[in-house]
Structure formats: C-alpha cells, structure tokens
Amino acid sequence: MVKNNITSDFKSQLSTVNCQLENVIHVENLVKRFGDFTAVDHISFDVWQGEIFGFLGANGAGKTTAMRMLCGLSKPTEGHGRVAGFDIDREVEKVKSNIGYMSQKFSLYNDLKVWENIRLFAGIYGMRDREIAQKTDELLQRLNFASERNTLVKELPLGWKQKLAFSVSIFHHPKVVFLDEPTGGVDPVTRRQFWELIYEATAEGITVFVTTHYMDEAEYCNRVSIMVDGQIKALDTPKNLKHQFSADSMDDVFHQLARNAKRGDN
C-alpha cells in the first residue's frame, strides 16, 4: 500500500493558492467485490482541498468502480471513505449533493438549450432561481458564450460542449468535482483550454479528481495515483514519480507500472 506523503513541493504549491490542508476525500482500505472478482482491492488515499488529483490506471484496473463508490453510486464491500465531509456508505445523498460530476459520454442534454441545461442542473442541486439567473449570465460572459444562450446543445462543437459541461458540473460550487476522461477526442487547443478552466476552478477552492489517458495531462496534476489490478501502485507528485521510476516522462512511469497488469484488457 502506498502511503500518502505530501511533499514540501506540493505544500508550497497549495499555499500559493491559499488553501488549508484539509482532506476532501479520505479513503481507507476500500474494497469492491463482484462475486469472486475483486474489482477494487484495498485502496487508501487522501485528496487535499484545492488539489488537482490525477486518477490513472490501465483499462480494467478498477478506476471506474472506485470512482462510482466515491460518488455514492456503488456501495463498498469493505473499508470506508468520506467525500466532501460525508460517509460514502451511510450518507450517500449528502455526498451526491456536495460533489460535481462530469463524464466524457454523458454530460448535457442535447435537446435542451444552453441556458436550459444550466437551469436544469442548478435546479437539481437546489439552487435558487435568482442565484441561477445571475450566475448564468456571469458564466456565459466568462466563457464568451453569451451569443449561444439559446443554442441547442447538440449544435455546439464538441470542445464547447465539454467546456460547458465542466462549467455546469461546478455551477453549484461543489467541494470536489469528478471528471471522467473529460478531454477524450477533443482537439489539442481546446484540450489545453479545458485544463485552464480546471486551474481556474481550483483557484476558487474546488478540488478536482480527474481521470485521463493523455499522459501529458498527468503532468498538470498536483499528485497522481496509478492503479493496476485493483490496487494503487504509486501515488505522488509527477516530479517525484518520475524520479522514483528513473523515468523522463509520466508516459514512461505509466508503462513501467501497467505493462505487467495481469487482468483487465489483456
């Protein structure tokens, strides 16, 4: 099991965004079994407030299952965890209302207009009409989206959709947002603009928990964990991981850890 050591490096990064070291996610010996199959095998880690935490792993390593437990969508078989201050086993509804979530596949309703999507999700999270109206204006201004207020989401280019989906997922200012491969298939310029939105969100104190298959994006995270065969095999800052594995890129670190994966997609 990898211990959570916060390096002085990371502490100094955090202090620059003026955050206290408070854990937004705390997980201890979390296990999920489906019959004989242990999808998630005793994982333990903390994610600190204001941090960008990269959750990497090979296909089939158990990332999605772990993430579903953290979001209150799946009950742990063993172990326990707290997300945004609530127990992921006993306070599932409170967990759900205090997080944001965005997936690559489903994020917004194509047949609703831009403002209607914002209105819908904000309403689901219990925001007041007046606050929604005001924040919608602010958001559309900031994204240079004001002219698209009445556009159906299905008519937006993919890159815009993903930026809007992210903004909607943090519209209710959750403590932590879960992003599941948010940039898959997005063009290289928009992909980078998306990461700038992530940085802006963390500057506002939102913690970001993100999965990606782009190893250059692993470098943009404060810390990264790499999951193999249901277990977290490494967890540290990208810099320390590269040093630990004598690697010159996160791609190399990933290959060293994941190429011996026994299960999943091979």
Binding site: N59, Q104, H213, M215, F254, H255, A258, D265
Partner: peptide, 11 residues
C-alpha cells in the same frame, strides 16, 4: 485506440 490506456494502445 480511443479511450484505450497507453499500454494497450502500444500493444
């Protein structure tokens, strides 16, 4: 290879 992890992509 869309949505496939780096090791499987290489394979």
């Amino acid at each position: 290879t869309t949505g496939v992890d780096p090791v499987s992509r290489k394979e």
